[in-house]
Write a protein that binds this DNA or RNA. Structure first.
Lengths: 212, 212
DNA sequence: ACCTGAACACCGTTCAAGT
DNA sequence: ACCTGAACACCGTTCAAGT
């Protein structure tokens, strides 16, 4: 238990002093690995091998830490490129890629959302979406409106999807989904797959937007 | 500062012993008034004029408290009735009423969502939605699919709407919305109103569902 | 400029008691 | 059955210092 080694175990670059980038990096890893609730300044400082107050010096208080993390995550999510040929396919591909990339990082998306930065998180996708829609012949206002409609569909789908994951057996009330008597053996009660719903709705929406 | 009055100030019914209903009621008022982060077991006990451990005896730990609150809120939100005439109007009215009622209780919706009970919160709306769609002539599977599509649209719209409220001036990056040069004086950057987007998308979706 | 140590006010939770 | 008091381990945050 003697402090025989002066080098702290968690420090990334042992040479220079601590940087806010290092701190945010370790903080993000904590959120990804152990969840948002596991991110405490004290635990973060411990993992960095540093006193709590060092974190305060570099990134400020916990609110500032979360803001910095959100900005970092938004930056990392980066650009989205459409795939396929034809307006319908390309526009839908953007929405689908965005949805999958959000579903892959549930904890980070939750953090960004809690910080009220969801709009900023979607900004890159919105840009390519609008560009694609304008190429398809839509005017500026129509393109902006349609892009936002598609994005809100993605948001809804992602958030509902996570709900299903987190609460797998939510069958406390006996109301059935369709309003008529369910068979006794019918345990599943036609739980429509969220990806199917998303594809269906997206298809309908995009077709209508492109006037087909 | 003497304990001259034996009656605790926050107790609803001074007569009998404490009930979990009373506790949940006060807890809900705290969330509505001061926000979810202001809900602490210690503060709750203080407001009830009772020792912390009394809360534990009735409702269990904090997780159980939040579960109980979520169940209570879901129960309160209750039934939704369609208005107007014609399938298109009636189906859309359900979605619109649901959206408004969710937007009126942002803190409670956030709590339910954090507890992973969003699906249960939407169950009453889903039932009337499916009933209306079946009246309009849709089959069971189609009705379930369409209802879920409409609900995910509501979810997305509500969550984005709250984002805009909470983060009013989010203009740190200079990227414009449409992908071309923005005028210098153009501060607004065509921020499409979320209610407009919702109405537009809902209209498109419902029309497509009803096959018009 | 960068970091430590100690302290403060607050949490959730539990245990042993009381009536 | 219902409630209290005291204690524990954990938070975020700040202040006065150190180099």
């Amino acid at each position: 238990m003697r402090p025989e080694s002066r080098q702290a175990p968690g420090r990334a670059t042992p040479g220079g002093p601590l940087s806010s980038d290092q701190i945010l990096e370790v903080a993000q890893r904590i959120v990804e690995t152990e969840g948002l609730s596991a991110l405490t300044i004290r635990g973060l400082a411990a993992k960095l091998g540093v006193a709590v107050t060092a974190v305060y010096w570099h990134v400020g208080d916990k609110h500032a830490l979360l803001e910095g993390l959100a900005a970092r995550i938004i930056d990392e999510m980066g650009e989205i490129t459409a795939t396929g040929r034809g307006a319908q396919t390309r526009v839908a591909s953007i929405a689908r890629i965005l949805r999958v990339s959000l579903l892959e990082r549930p904890e980070l998306v939750a953090l960004v959302h809690r910080q009220g930065r969801t709009a900023a998180l979607f900004q890159p996708a919105r840009k390519v979406l609008v560009a694609e829609l304008r190429t398809a012949g839509l005017g500026d206002d129509q393109a902006a409106l349609a892009a936002q409609a598609i994005l809100s569909l993605v948001v809804g789908s992602v958030l509902i999807d996570r709900q299903v994951e987190r609460q797998p057996a939510q069958r406390d009330d006996t109301d059935d989904l369709l309003g008529h008597d369910a068979e006794v053996g019918d345990v599943a009660l036609t739980p429509v797959d969220e990806a199917t719903i998303f594809d269906y709705t997206l298809d309908v929406l995009v077709k209508s937007i492109l006037g087909q």
